[in-house]
Simulated assay, not measured.
Amino acid sequence: MNVASAAETAETKPQILPYTAEYRISSNSLTTTATRSLSKRGDNWQLSQHAKLMFIKVSEESIIEDGAMGLRPLRYEYSNNFSSRQDQKINFDWKHALASDKKYRKPWSAPLTAGTYDQLSAQLQMRQALICGRFDTAMVQTVVNRGKHKTYEIEKIGEEIIDSPVGKLNTVKLRRGREGSDSETIVWLAKDWNYLIVRLEQTDEDDTYSLELLNATLNGKKVKG
């Protein structure tokens, strides 16, 4: 391979792209909108989501390392101005293999192993596996939330063309669940748009939660079907 070919290959190598997006969120009988963005912060990724319903503001942010060890969360923060007892600030100390949160109402620390993510970085790692062609039929993730580590299996259940507020989109459809639990999440990701999440439906006992893409800009280009 000559230098020109090598450069071309490097330029066309599939990679995560930054974006900004607006989603409609529904939780049981409540509906609001949320903004989500993925951007570079030095050598790391910053993935954040902000939602507001009347006087309630909920924010999430994950700082994610993208290096030789792949995507690894460094810090995750969750804040709710209506219920601060649920606030979290998880620190992922990979050098000492320890995850901890001193802000949560029940401060905790636990051993940290490879393949452990917070709620947001888990979604980015799932998308990266699809973008880079490393997702075959299933994958396993461990997510830490409020001091609990839960291991999920994500399986590919098909492809589907869906109608959305941005037009018809070619999507891959995934299911996430865990052994011994009836809760599950179905997620649709746009194949032609860097596997951006365009729809998500989650059921957990009597609770339901859904997410639908309203508009987005991916790497400076407006997402449309």
Rank of each mutant, 00 (worst) to 15 (best):
M1N: 08
M1D: 05
V3Y: 03
A4R: 01
A10F: 11
A10I: 14
T12Y: 11
T12V: 10
K13S: 15
Q15L: 07
Q15S: 13
I16F: 07
P18L: 08
Y19D: 05
Y19T: 08
Y19I: 04
E22Y: 05
E22Q: 15
Y23H: 09
Y23C: 09
R24G: 05
I25T: 01
I25G: 00
S29T: 06
S29K: 07
S29G: 04
L30Y: 10
A34H: 01
T35Y: 06
R36W: 02
S37Q: 14
S37N: 14
L38D: 01
S39Q: 12
S39V: 13
K40W: 06
G42N: 08
D43T: 13
W45M: 04
S48E: 06
H50K: 15
K52M: 00
L53Q: 03
I56P: 03
V58H: 00
V58M: 07
E60V: 03
I64E: 00
D66L: 11
A68L: 04
M69G: 11
M69K: 14
P73N: 10
E77L: 07
Y78D: 01
N80P: 13
F82H: 15
F82C: 09
S83A: 10
R85H: 04
Q86N: 15
Q86I: 12
D87M: 04
K89Q: 09
I90F: 02
F92C: 07
W94A: 04
K95N: 13
K95A: 14
H96K: 13
H96V: 08
A97E: 15
D101F: 02
K102E: 12
K102C: 03
K103H: 08
Y104M: 01
R105M: 06
K106Q: 13
A110K: 13
P111I: 08
L112Y: 01
T113K: 14
A114W: 03
T116C: 02
Y117Q: 05
S121V: 13
S121E: 14
A122V: 00
A122D: 00
Q123P: 03
Q123S: 10
L130R: 09
G133K: 08
R134F: 09
F135I: 10
F135V: 09
T137V: 13
A138L: 10
M139G: 02
V140F: 00
N145R: 09
N145V: 04
G147E: 10
K148T: 07
K150A: 15
E153D: 10
I154H: 02
E155M: 11
E155A: 15
K156N: 12
K156D: 07
K156S: 13
K156A: 11
I162W: 01
I162R: 00
D163M: 03
S164L: 05
S164M: 04
P165K: 14
L169S: 04
T171S: 11
R176F: 06
R178Q: 11
R178D: 04
E179V: 15
S181K: 05
W188N: 07
A190E: 06
D192F: 08
W193T: 08
W193D: 10
N194I: 07
Y195L: 09
I197Q: 14
V198W: 03
R199W: 00
R199P: 00
D204S: 12
E205M: 02
D206M: 11
D206L: 13
D206R: 14
D207E: 13
S210D: 02
S210Y: 01
E212D: 09
L213Q: 09
L213S: 10
L214F: 08
N215D: 15
N215A: 15
N215I: 12
T217F: 00
N219F: 13
G220I: 07
G220H: 11
G225P: 05
